[in-house]
Computed example of a mutant assay.
Amino acid sequence: MTDLHVPAGVPATRIMGLGHYRPANVITNDDLVARGVDTNDEWIRTRVGIAERRWADPDESVVDMGEQAASKALASSGVAAQDVDLVLVATCTMPTPVPAAAPQLASRLGIDAPGAFDVNSGCSGFVYALNIASAAVLTGQARHVLVVASERFSGWIDMTDRTTCIILGDGAGAAVVGPSATPGFGPVVWGSDGEQFDTVAIDERTRYFRQEGQAVYRWATGQMADVARAACERAEIAPEDIAAFVPHQANLRIIDSLAKRLGLPNAVVARDIVTSGNTSAATIPLALSRMVEAGEIASGAPVLVLGFGSGLAYAAQVVLAP
């Protein structure tokens, strides 16, 4: 029997750099009213906590936004394009299923012939992609991995549905994952509730985004705190040692409920939804990158991330800030 050669891995992995991008086009709550949406600023702020969101220009694509965020992440990490072996894009808003965003993005960035594919797990997609990236580096399959989450929901919005059009935004976030002498990722706690798969979806007939908001709210507030707490326990990090909590930016009421239930006394809580809206897979890296850039999270500080949404899939993990 012939033994197969297995490449040498590394002792641990970490996030080496972050980047983000938000389109210039700011859509306030009053702008939605002016567009004919049956709502008002107070109604939106009270129910979902959003003051404004960003929508891409008509000719600005998922790949365009991902390129902007990825360029910043590469610059922040100090990793050159030629040292990236794998590109992952977490997205659920490409205009067509084929081609994927990742090969296009890699080509634009000058990354020569990397492995490249998209990850579609909706709002938890970035955390899933982070773990694929970490595994690739740990096992010696890649030196560095570029992970990008980019979403353009403005192309999938039903402007007559005030329960969804007020929430959704466009944007991108990115991270570079590479080798480390000490662990920068705690164990991931992930799973799904496939019996409720249809509560968040793109309608097959209309091609518009839709969701059963109350069902998602009950599921998230009822179960996701336990998932996040399990991630802390598996990483052996006490709640008081968590420096930041960055959950999926679905709804400010969900975020505040989870933060209260978790009891993280020293953590700054991401509330990027107030000015960015819900950008699905992009919410976590977008919020995390902005917080690191603003100096709200110190390098090496433990951050609890929690993705949840369509599927219904979820993933939680403690990571160290770059």
Rank of each mutant, 00 (worst) to 15 (best):
R207G: 07
A172N: 11
T199V: 05
R205D: 15
F185S: 06
P187Y: 02
D193R: 14
D203E: 03
T206H: 07
Q196L: 12
F185V: 13
G213M: 04
Q196N: 14
G173R: 02
F197D: 13
G178M: 03
G178Y: 06
G178E: 00
D198M: 15
W190L: 15
P179W: 07
Q196G: 11
G213V: 05
Y208R: 14
V189K: 07
Q196I: 14
A174K: 11
I202Q: 02
E204Q: 12
V189F: 08
E195Q: 15
E212L: 04
Q211P: 04
G173M: 01
D193P: 07
T182K: 14
G171I: 01
V189H: 14
Q196Y: 15
S180N: 14
P187L: 03
V177Y: 01
R207Y: 03
R210M: 14
E195F: 03
R205G: 14
E195S: 11
A174M: 10
D203T: 14
Y208D: 12
D193E: 15
G186I: 01
P183R: 06
A181F: 11
T182F: 10
S192L: 01
R205A: 12
V177T: 00
Y208H: 10
A172H: 05
G194H: 10
R205S: 11
S192N: 06
W190P: 00
G184I: 04
S192R: 00
D203C: 00
V177E: 04
V176E: 05
G173E: 04
A181W: 02
D193I: 08
G171H: 00
T206P: 08
S180M: 08
Q196V: 07
Q211E: 11
F185E: 01
A175Y: 04
V200M: 12
G178F: 01
A175N: 05
V177W: 04
V200D: 04
T206E: 05
D203I: 14
G191Q: 02
S180V: 09
A201E: 05
Q211R: 03
E204D: 12
A175R: 08
V188S: 03
A172D: 03
R210T: 15
V200Y: 06
R207N: 02
R210F: 13
Q196W: 02
P179D: 09
E212R: 00
A172E: 10
